[in-house]
Write a protein that binds this DNA or RNA. Sequence first.
DNA 1: TATCTAATTAGATGATAATCGAAATGGGGC
DNA 2: GCCCCATTTCGATTATCATCTAATTAGATA
Lengths: 198, 198
Amino acid sequence: MGHAFMQLNRLVAFYKTMGDPTRIRIVFLLAKGPLHGQAIAGKLGLTPPTITHHLNKLREINLVYQRRDKNTVYFYLNESVLKHQSGVLAKLADKEEVKKMEEQNSENQKVIENFFTRDGKLKNIPAQRKKKLMVFEHLIKGLKMGKKYEEKELNEYIKQYHEDYATIRREFIINHYMYRENGIYELNPQEMWAKIEG
Amino acid sequence: MGHAFMQLNRLVAFYKTMGDPTRIRIVFLLAKGPLHGQAIAGKLGLTPPTITHHLNKLREINLVYQRRDKNTVYFYLNESVLKHQSGVLAKLADKEEVKKMEEQNSENQKVIENFFTRDGKLKNIPAQRKKKLMVFEHLIKGLKMGKKYEEKELNEYIKQYHEDYATIRREFIINHYMYRENGIYELNPQEMWAKIEG
DNA sequence: TATCTAATTAGATGATAATCGAAATGGGGC
DNA sequence: GCCCCATTTCGATTATCATCTAATTAGATA
């Protein structure tokens, strides 16, 4: 979707998951067609619990899905994810792509500079969706991954930047930067947009 | 190079290495141009020893190289490796490519069946280079990675398959499946061709 | 309901690895 | 020859993880 920010966590999770011989072999097997657990265990010479373990890892990064037939669970490869994630790093080998990313990065920075005062306050919430998201992504950088926030605590945090904490807090939820569970707010791990470089 | 066999180890090493946030960030930094160690450490907020550690890992998979200027070492990204390794898994998302691999696999199997007797002896050494390599790759599967072989021991192993152990032993060296160091033979780690599936 | 089978969970073990502070290395400049 | 500086090595710490065996779940069949 052409963002100046990247989901570093997802990318890392993908590569970490693939950095295991057993899982690579499973992916090669599934590329030829779906298989059930015991078939995989048999072909690889490993026990069923081990296969379950690895299929869980592969499912966490959305690389496999499953369908049940009677007692047997068939596992399928999700090819689009494979293609997409492999592509991210490949782009770095392409000078043109790198230049594009840099431009987007500086575009982003310009937006941030435009909408924030020199001492870090948000002047106003951008009307344009793209810019609005850039601003939100900037704001959530000050929040800690995995930490649970009381609504009051979150309001205080947002108020550092802008009066209308209620609107912004709501936008965080709408755009899936955070989620709420009985009154407690937390960053959405899947949506941890992190600037990759220092 | 269109082999039915893959360097599983190398592929896994690549993904394992990239499965770390610090190293991904280093790669993103270097994609924009070379940098020296302390610059990287500064940009990422880590200490120099940590950076050295990660650059070693990245060098092991050939993803970076370095050039020295006075006291400062500049690190460069090796783009072709990045492109190539990213491509391997991406191919699995493409039905056509998978079919090609399967065909090569079965072609390979046919060659093995043609040149070996039913009880596993090698009938003769193929004249055609491509087939010859397939046969050698089949033979070295019985050797252990990392183990050091006396010449006599290696001869014995080859003799299981074929009389002319001297020729075959020499071919192992010529084609870089093994290397020799003062009389001791060992599989070349870089050339451990492993069949990916069970 | 009893039983079979495939899959999963739980728990244990052994191995690998990210990071840091402190110390060592090694080339450059004076 | 001596000091400076970027880099590297060493050792310790802490955390993660692949794999197994044993036990459990749960759907299907009879």
